[in-house]
Simulated scan of single mutants.
Amino acid sequence: MYKIGEFVELTGLTKETLRYYEEVNLLEPAYIDPDNNYRYYDDGSYFLALLLIKLREFGFTIQEMITVMEDESFEHLEELVLEKRKNIQMQIRKLQQTTQEIDEFIASGKEDTQ
């Protein structure tokens, strides 16, 4: 079992993030000491924390992360990650189109001044 400070060092998550994740039922401590309310995390918690960190890096929203965590078997995890990938690729295409339109706009302005 890891005390919250140790778990923070292991995962890189802040205490505030851990408390928030607990509040929204993303990552609950493995044990809360009833005498002092100290939170303890275990190796399973560590695995879940690493998964949450990776999902955040992938741009998952809190609600999307909750959807992943509610499916405790992670049966649909690959599907959700692939959907996120598809959305990111669509955003990239839109941004590339926008940059092309900006370039065309700038070029047309230069043509008008010549």
Rank of each mutant, 00 (worst) to 15 (best):
Y2W: 13
K3L: 07
K3I: 00
I4G: 00
G5Y: 02
F7A: 00
F7W: 01
G12P: 03
L13Y: 07
T14K: 14
E16Y: 08
E16V: 07
L18Y: 06
L18D: 00
L18C: 04
L18I: 01
Y20V: 03
E22I: 05
P29N: 06
A30Q: 06
A30W: 04
A30I: 02
P34V: 07
Y38A: 02
Y38E: 04
Y38C: 05
Y41T: 03
D42G: 03
G44L: 08
F47C: 04
F47M: 03
A49I: 00
L51I: 09
L52G: 00
K54R: 13
K54S: 01
R56Y: 04
F58L: 15
G59S: 09
T61Y: 07
Q63G: 02
E64Y: 02
E64P: 00
I66G: 01
V68C: 12
V68Y: 10
E75L: 06
H76F: 15
L77P: 05
E79L: 12
L80S: 04
V81W: 06
L82Q: 14
L82S: 08
L82C: 11
K84I: 07
R85M: 11
K86T: 09
N87P: 06
N87E: 15
M90Q: 14
I92M: 12
R93V: 01
K94A: 12
L95E: 11
Q96S: 05
T99E: 15
T99N: 14
Q100H: 15
D103S: 12
F105S: 15
I106S: 02
A107M: 14
S108Y: 13
G109C: 08
K110W: 03
K110H: 06
E111S: 14
D112Q: 15
Q114L: 10
